[in-house]
Amino acid sequence: MKLSAPQFWRVKENQYKLVITICKNCGRKTVFKRPICPHCGSDGVEYIESAGIGVVEEFTKVYYKRDSSEDRLPEVVGVVKLREGVRVVGEIVGIRSDEVREGMEVEAVLRKYVSDEPYGIIYYGLKFKPV
């Protein structure tokens, strides 16, 4: 794998923070800072930063192996509903996979996403761990 430095650098705000796009036209909220509302297409948007606290709405324990994933398997991927009312999909860490429950309160934590071993760049970003 060869990870790009500029690609990560360019999007790191959305990886380091949970920014929410609020549409001034349709009122819907969507995760990630984005120039246009994906629901109605309006560019009349504003942004807030989530406090990073939410609840696991649903989750799955994943065994699907792909390049460089083996040290993380099995991994738990879940849908987290943030306090700000927005859903986000992400990994749930800091807990044994069998202990994850729906309704569990979680907080966003910085973790490594991928690492270009052994000499390349490391991508960091947010995942979720139990509060």
Binding site: D71, L110, K112, Y113, Y124
Partner: peptide, 13 residues
């Protein structure tokens, strides 16, 4: 620490 943790991620918290 877990596989996806290092001194940066722990220090961040």
């Amino acid at each position: 620490a877990e596989e996806d943790e290092d001194s940066v991620t722990m220090g961040w918290y």
